[in-house]
Nucleic acid binder design. Structure first.
Lengths: 224, 224
DNA sequence: CACTGTGGTCTACAGCGTACACAGCCGGTC
DNA sequence: GACCGGCTGTGTACGCTGTAGACCACAGTG
């Protein structure tokens, strides 16, 4: 973040992402990013049309991290699983910014690439064009939500504060009336923070993929 | 919105929701809500600790619309389906504000009620406490996303502007290279706006429920 | 040399959330 | 009826936000 004249679009995106990761999306302000480059706020406007433009570029950066696996000989649903896993893996490191990809999915190149491949795989599974497009819209949100709403990730810049927040949340849940909310009280630990992150995401993706498989089967059956 | 001294908490929430519905969540400002009640901005602070408090109350209002169906004799997954449908139905009329329920799910009474019932039904399906809690976290996001990301709902206060936006989006997709993105181009209509809203939401919920059923079956099988 | 486009600067403005001190009205008690 | 304490709305003020508009320093080109 050294003082250098002639600032660079990609580096601006990088520091914006860093700020979002560290302190949340609200902390990404024009002034803040500018200051981290020792530059006047207005300087950013030579590289982005407005703040929205910066955020769209941020979404593009996130989506760029989602590599589309090469097609292979395995069944379509296994390849779809890998594709979706790759997608959430790209978002997971940046949960604060993940919301932005909602807007960038069909306006950035990487977003289009992922969408295209997903549609292709669903077609291989026998889904109609309309149905696979509809399904794509539905699961996009689910995947983003998966990355954002990982239990045990709340506020708190440092891990220490985060741990405090988790403990507080757990305590809140345990303090509920066991008569009214017996299951919630029993599940307080898991609701406050998932024990195994990898398992959490794997199962989340699996849940979606099995849902899609079933939809494909049902559609094929309906067409007898 | 007549001038009346002695303003009322619930009415403040109502107008905040109305503003969010009409112009988006960003349009909900303390000053704006106050003005609609012919009152100084600071007056709101007698009824909410801060703006965040207002938004949490807004989330509570949304969740309050989700009625928990009475238990009956049908299989657990059918009842779960109805519960989740009721949940998204409560959010659908207010897509701009739906994001807020992420925070209010375990801090508001209605959110707890829905969660408790969902956990109960999954337990009936043979799921372990941990697994059902994990699943609850995963699907919450999916349901919210479903309500928010309905295709064909973007910006534009009036239906006319919305229709314009849809047409523009469709045109953008159709303008893509058919060599690179053949499926996307073919599916442009469905991606830009879903043809049947009811079907869209029904299938979205079905996708999730079948995913859960499968997870329950798999867990039962693993425990042989 | 003058000309032109590019990119950073400076100033300014309207709008945001909200801290703090104050004023009016309300209901309850002598 | 007189008083009084607490609730509720008011006024002012501060520091923050995004960004419009005029300005200037420099590079490359004729």
């Amino acid at each position: 973040m050294a003082a250098q004249k002639r600032l660079n679009r990609e580096e601006l995106i990088t520091t914006a992402l860093a700020v979002a990761d560290a302190e949340g999306l609200d902390a990404v302000t024009v002034r803040r990013v500018a200051q981290l480059h020792d530059v006047t706020p207005m300087a950013l406007y030579r590289h982005f049309p407005d703040k929205e433009g910066l955020l769209v570029a941020l979404a593009g950066r996130l989506l760029g991290g989602a590599v589309v696996p090469e097609p292979d000989d395995r069944p379509w649903h296994e390849q779809l699983r890998d594709l979706l896993s790759s997608f959430v893996d790209a978002l997971r490191p940046h949960p604060n910014a993940a919301l932005l990809v909602f807007n960038g999915m069909v306006t950035t190149e990487p977003g289009l690439a992922v969408t295209e491949r997903a549609l292709e795989l669903m077609a291989q599974g026998g889904m109609s064009v309309e149905r696979s497009a509809e399904t794509a819209s539905q699961i996009l949100g689910s995947l983003v939500a998966l990355a954002i709403a990982e239990p045990g990730r709340d506020l708190g810049p440092d891990p220490e504060a985060n741990e405090d927040a988790v403990r507080a949340k757990r305590a809140t849940l345990l303090a509920l009336s066991p008569r009214r909310y017996p299951r919630i009280v029993a599940a307080a630990d898991t609701l406050a923070a998932c024990s195994d992150r990898e398992l959490y995401f794997d199962r989340g993706v699996d849940l979606i993929v099995t849902g899609i498989r079933d939809a494909a089967r049902a559609e094929a059956a309906a067409a007898h």
